[in-house]
Structures are given as structure tokens and as C-alpha cells.
Design a binder for these strands. Sequence first.
DNA 1: GAATGTGAACGGCTTCACAGCC
DNA 2: GGCTGTGAAGCCGTTCACATTC
Lengths: 255, 255
Amino acid sequence: MATGRTHRPATRSRGIPEATVARLPLYLRALTALSERSVPTVSSEELAAAAGVNSAKLRKDFSYLGSYGTRGVGYDVEYLVYQISRELGLTQDWPVVIVGIGNLGAALANYGGFASRGFRVAALIDADPAMAGKPVAGIPVQHTDDLEKIIQDNGVSIGVIATPAGAAQQVCDRLVAAGVTSILNFAPTVLSVPDGVDVRKVDLSIELQILAFHEQRKAGEEAMEALPDGLPAAAAAKGSADQGPDGDVPAVMPA
Amino acid sequence: MATGRTHRPATRSRGIPEATVARLPLYLRALTALSERSVPTVSSEELAAAAGVNSAKLRKDFSYLGSYGTRGVGYDVEYLVYQISRELGLTQDWPVVIVGIGNLGAALANYGGFASRGFRVAALIDADPAMAGKPVAGIPVQHTDDLEKIIQDNGVSIGVIATPAGAAQQVCDRLVAAGVTSILNFAPTVLSVPDGVDVRKVDLSIELQILAFHEQRKAGEEAMEALPDGLPAAAAAKGSADQGPDGDVPAVMPA
DNA sequence: GAATGTGAACGGCTTCACAGCC
DNA sequence: GGCTGTGAAGCCGTTCACATTC
């Protein structure tokens, strides 16, 4: 298979479902912990528990990567760590810029998990001239004016936007124009980007609102339990909630 | 899933899909912006564009809430704002505690969008005695020892965990024991909670890893385009990426 | 015997397309 | 004519259950 007709035959067997991709980092984290404890192999059952998913899902996920397990035994921890890292593209170094060094931007710059897995904070950028030159997390903040040069000089393809909502789209446009093709957006706005650019968003207030919805629903149920009538649904009914032992996935939005 | 009885007959017509719930805050934000500009009505097309989804999805979503639109006209902005707010439980006040006042916790405490919609930071809690009493975002930090009392005195049902990974589960257990039933987790760990407790997680490094995966895939495609052979798939092929004009949803995990 | 890998069934969400209403 | 509301179709992801392999 060579030609690029209908889809992408691509390098390997290709076509890992997005939902699976979103769980790979979870598996990787659990595997890394096992690796540090020098555990040689895990069963799908054990690993699934550690990652907070069910074992059938995990096995299905891994089956998209290939047959990396041994029947009757389980998975080799080190080998899987390597395979998943490779699949996620973490065997290479990804320079990242953070734009908007307010409270959040500074927190992100200081975030250890950042550097840990193939990501490197290549630059911090802020629009406030007073910030310029000041070191945050040991990295001097640079002014927005130099954004394009910074992106190009460092070969940055992943940008993090931590600016106020009002500035986000403009920053996004400049990042994209300068060559960034993946954006992690913390600003509470919908970003428009051309085809081929991925945007993922992290939105605190949306998360809280979703929790509030469920919280309200729970309160409603308790109120119903207080009403004693026909069928008793009380007590055990409390559980339900919603979920599914998964670890779903946020968004990838296009233009 | 659904653990309870068959389902919940519940207060109203009930049964709003989780995917829809996750988008309501998006619609609400877009509507609020329109409201501030005193726009009286919107069509599904316009609102969908502002929220970054497609109009069919938006109409379907709204149909779960009821028939709030007018055919041939559109939706009344103010009315929709109210209905969605009510549905999300934002017409009431939700006291929230933030545990772990490091860089991230402080950023969250300072985050304006927090207070804006029905959420109120009732308390900041940290394990470091040196932090106790210090004001962050105008709120004095309290020590972890008093966690239970703080939760109960303030009637808190939503907790935000911004501690290091190692402390998260322990904090979570204490929050839950004290009566918290919704948790927003920023620590990079899988939390175990009893049935009836909702957990949503925000994980920076997972988001980056997902972006890296797609980024790598793009690089692979470019390499293939470089190989000139039979059928030209180059140029326009760049687009594709993945997505769907949505705004998907993170996770809700159970025990 | 033990645990993986996977076809098949299932369920939920999205998209389509159009009937119904202003 | 314009736009909402929604059945029906299609797609994707999850779960089941078992054949396969060690």
C-alpha cells in the first residue's frame, strides 16, 4: 500500500482511534510507575486498574498498536513503555512556547510534568514590556513582538496559549502564521484555525459547570428520596452517577 | 452504565446526554457574549458558529432541553441564557475549595472565570504551615488540618485538587469523607472514589502528548508527500487532520 | 491454566434530511 | 421563505465472549 488516495495508508497499519490515543498517555504513566518499581510484566487486568479503565478496553487499545503481549503472561513493561512512547512521538524532543505569562502561564512554566516527557519549554512570551527579561521558572520572558522569530529560531510546532480571552485569537493567528500546528488553549474562547492545525482546549470553568450539573442532579435525587411513595428507589440508587470507568477525552477542534 | 434502578424517572423529562451537557457551557458562553451586545435573537447557525459546533448538533442539543426556539426566527438570547443556566445549576451559588496552593492553585484562585458563574472560592487549603494565614487572591490560606471543618462549615460539595500527585488520593479521600461529591482533579493521578462521586480531571501533560501524537503524524505525512511517485496526493492532503467541528468532552470517572 | 487478541453485538452520539411551524 | 425540531441512518467506541496462544 503506497498511494495516498482515500485516507492515509501512512507509515504503518495506521488508524488508531482518537479515543485510544487519548488513553495512551494514561497507560504510559501507569507503566512508567511500574517500570520505576522494576516490575517486569503486567496483565491487562492489573494495568487497567492502575490506569483507571477496564481491561477489555485496554486490550482493544493495545491491539491497535500491534501484538505486544504474551498470552498467558501479560505485557513486558519496558517494551510497552517504549512502544507507546514511540507511538505518541515522545522519543523526540518537542520545543514548546507558552504565550501569556500571568498566574497560569507561570504555573505552566513551573509545571514539572512538562519537561518530563519529551517536552521542553523553549520560550515564554508575554505582551507586557515590564515582564520582558524577567526570569520565570528560570527562563527569561520575551516580548510578543519577537514571537515569529522565536517560533522559527526554535523550530516550535506546539504552542500553549495562556493569555486572557481577548488576546487569544490574535495570538493564535500569529502562532499559526509562524508555523505552529498544534495549540493547547487555556483561554476561554473558541479559536478558529485553518485545516491541519490541531487545537485542544482546557477550560476550567466548563469543567466546573459540568460538575455543577451533576451536583444539582444529585441534590434533586435526594429530594425525591425524601418523598416516600410507591416504589423505593432510595438507598442504593445513590450510586449511579454517570461515568463508565473510562478517562474520556477533550476536544480537537478545526476551523 | 447506569447503576441505579433502570434509570432515573427524575424531576423532569430527564436524560440529557452527557455529550450535550458538556457543550452547554460553550453555548452559554456564546450566548452571554451576545447578551452583552444586546443581541435579541440568534439562529442555530449563528450560535453554532460562535460556539464552534455545527448547527445540527446544537439544535439536537437544545431539543433535549425543550422547545425553546421559534421556527423561522431563532432563539431568544436572554431566555436561552436563563434556561441553560438553570439546567446547569448555575442559578445557585456553589462554594468551592481549592486544595494545594502552589503555582497552579494560586493561579486557579486568581482565575476570574471562577467567580463569574455561580462559583465562589470558599476556602484555600494547603499542607504547608508556612502558608497558613497568607492571603492568596485576597483569601487567607488555611491548613489541611482543618479541611473537614472547612468543608462542613461552608457546605462545600465541589473540591478542586491542585496538590502534587502523591498527595492527591489522600486529599481526595478526606474531601469525600467530609461530604464533597464532585472533584476537579489537576493532579496527574487516577483517583479512586466511591459511587456517587464525580471526578473530572484536567491533565496538562496528557493534552500535550495527544498533540504530539498528531504532530508526529503530520510530520510523517509531509515526509510521504516528499516522495514523488505515481499518484499525487500532496498539496491538498495537508488538511484532513482529524477533528470534527465539535468541542468534545473530558472524563468522568467512577470508583 | 492463564491471559491475550479480536469478531460481533451493543449503545450512544453525530449527521442527514425533511416535516412542521412561523 | 426561513429556521426549528426530530425521526432515521450512519459512525464510533465500548463491551462481551471466546478462540488462540503460551
